[in-house]
Structures are given as structure tokens and as C-alpha cells.
Design a protein around this nucleic acid. Structure first.
Lengths: 113, 113
DNA sequence: TATATATGCATAAGAAAATTATGTATATAT
DNA sequence: ATATATACATAATTTTCTTATGCATATATA
């Protein structure tokens, strides 16, 4: 995670889960490139943040891993488990809620009801 | 800061600055109540997060402080400095950018250009 | 009258999630 | 030959929060 904003703290898990929800399996480096592409370079996921996050999600049983060798280089493909798919929905709901809450705080026109 | 979500990390400074941009001076406890009201209880700022954050903003020269005694109880009123007003604009721009970026990541229809 | 709740501040210990710096290794372009 | 891209990993440190605790006064309630 690297950007000029501190707001992304806490968002990495949500991002990983969402990407894996759209593409059934991805490897670490691929995730960093996809995020860079989707955000036009605005958000660069650092390896020091990404790999520990992937390991944690795997340890929690939200991701399964599958090792492959491509062009003589190692790749670790990650995919959502059933629990991971549920957690993705939950995280996306949280994100939506967060955005609404922040809009209510900073722009009165978005008041909550 | 206390809620069902972990996404609020990094948002507290933005919230404080924005509230002080709308009301020229506020004290800590008042900020916690205002946030609770605006978010319908969704977001509860804890004292352990708020007071250190206020002290840090003061140390950075973004806030000025003014002590008052009301009903025999102490209040520390905080207000934006000139730098604080500039930083508020910057933080709100960051928040807007964060929301757009996250929407681009989680909902393809909000792609960045 | 005792006691809980609200108001108002503060800090310390610990956890979570990043940043920054390293390290290893292969493939490809200059 | 050398830099850049691909691909993984971890360790030290920093930031920001949670949880717990402490002090003190005012007010509502049992």
C-alpha cells in the first residue's frame, strides 16, 4: 500500500477479497499490477503490506493457495474459500457503510437516516 | 474511534479538521457528541483516540487551543490555525480521491479517467 | 442519601496494519 | 555487463487505533 493518503489503511483486505471475487485466482504480483492499473497508478500496493496480508487471510481460512511454476519462476495463486466469499460480501458492505458515514460527516447533503 | 469497521483508520484527523472548519471552535467532548449525532451512533470516537489526535494536531501547528471553565469544569477549545485551514482542504480532497479510487476498485462502473 | 450517569480531561499498554529496508532468484531488455 | 521486470519473503520501525485506567465535577434517580 503506498499513496499520498493515509485513508487506505485498513482497505487492503477488502481490495484483495474483491479482486479475487472477480477473478477466481490471482497471484501476489498480479494483484499489485491490477491495482496499479485500475487506480491509474494512484495506489501502489507494497510487497511488505501485501504478502503478510495474503498469509493472514490464508491462515484465517479465507483464502486457499496453489503453487505453480511459470517460466521457471514461482507463483502462488490465491483463491477465495467459501468463508472468503462470505467475508467479501461483509467487507464490501462495510466499505459502503464507511463511505456513507464519511459523506454524512463531511457533506451535510448526505445525511444518514 | 469505535465501530464495526476497521476502515476508519486514518479518518479521524480529517473528521476533526472538517468539524472545526464548520464551527470555529469546539472542545473534545463536543466533537465526540457531534460525530455520534451526525452518524446516528454508527461512529463513536473513543477518548483514547481523540485526545492524542488533538494534541498531535496542536503540536503540528494545525490547531490552536484555548482553555475555559464552564460550570466549574474544564474545557479545552480547539480552533484551526491558518495552516490547519489549508490542511483541511487537502484532507477533504484526499477523502474524495480515496472514495473515487475505492469505487473504481470495487465497482467497475466507477472507473477512473 | 447513596449511586449511577453524564460531562470533561489525560495517559499507558498493547494490537493491528502499514512503511521502509532487505534478501533471494530468474528472465529480459539495453 | 547491467538495469529492469517478475516473483516471493521477512524484519525493524512507525502510525493509529483499542482497551484500560485515572482524576474530577454535576446531575439525575433509586
Amino acid at each position: 500500500m503506498m499513496s499520498n493518503s493515509k485513508l487506505y489503511k485498513g482497505s487492503l483486505t477488502t481490495i484483495i477479497l474483491k479482486l479475487l471475487n472477480e477473478k477466481d485466482k490471482m497471484y501476489g504480483y498480479e494483484i499489485t499490477q491490477k491495482v496499479k492499473e485500475l487506480t491509474k497508478g494512484e495506489l501502489q500496493i507494497t510487497e511488505g503490506a501485501l504478502y503478510p496480508a495474503l498469509h493472514k487471510l490464508e491462515a484465517e481460512g479465507l483464502l486457499d493457495v496453489e503453487v505453480a511454476k511459470v517460466d521457471n519462476r514461482l507463483r502462488k495463486y490465491y483463491m477465495l474459500t467459501e468463508d472468503g466469499a462470505k467475508e467479501t460480501v461483509s467487507k464490501l458492505t462495510e466499505l459502503e457503510s464507511y463511505i456513507k458515514t464519511m459523506q454524512a460527516l463531511v457533506s451535510p447533503k448526505f445525511s444518514l437516516e
